[in-house]
Amino acid sequence: MHRRVYLAAVGTAVSAGLAGCSSAISTGGSDPCSGEDCHIGMNRTEFLPDVYEISVGETVVWKNTSEADHTVTAYDNGIPAAADFFATGGFENQASARHAWQGQRGGRLGPRETFEHTFEVPGTYEYFCIPHERAEMDGKIVVSE
């Protein structure tokens, strides 16, 4: 009888300890987005998928599929020279996006919110999440002709 009480207590403690540690959508490493709803999802510290391939003129939709706040912020030196900078919050460059996040969480993409950008210039676009950059939350969009 004591063993059952012990196991029940341990199981409850483990469950409580893990609560909130997973993304809202359990992906098991797979892509939480497909189709029209979104193309790239987000868990606690990853864009899913982290590399996405499209053609010129296509629009990519990111969706925050986790419970954490995120940003989608292009690296100034990680996009083609003729390409438009993109970031949640509509900032003109990486420094402005960082400053806004640090001041008032500007560019915040809350749970279930989406952000979209249309890619008009071929090349590779590198981007990241400001609050999770140290956790290496970054991604790439590869745009072909």
Rank of each mutant, 00 (worst) to 15 (best):
R112W: 12
A24P: 01
Y125F: 08
C38I: 07
G89N: 04
A8L: 10
T65G: 03
F119W: 05
S144C: 00
T114Y: 06
T12C: 14
R108P: 04
T73W: 06
F86L: 07
C129S: 15
R44K: 14
N64C: 03
D76F: 12
F115I: 04
G35I: 08
G41Y: 00
R4P: 00
A87H: 00
V72R: 02
S15M: 13
I54L: 07
T118I: 04
H70M: 10
S22C: 09
G57M: 09
E36Q: 11
G107F: 04
P131L: 07
E46W: 05
G29N: 01
R108N: 09
E53D: 08
Y6T: 12
G139R: 01
T27A: 12
G11D: 13
A8H: 14
Y127A: 03
A82M: 09
P49F: 02
A82Y: 05
M42G: 00
V143L: 02
W101Y: 09
E116G: 12
L109W: 02
W101S: 01
G90E: 01
P32Q: 05
D31S: 15
R44S: 11
P32E: 04
E120M: 13
Y75E: 09
I25D: 03
R44G: 08
N64D: 11
Q94T: 01
A16D: 08
V60R: 01
L48V: 04
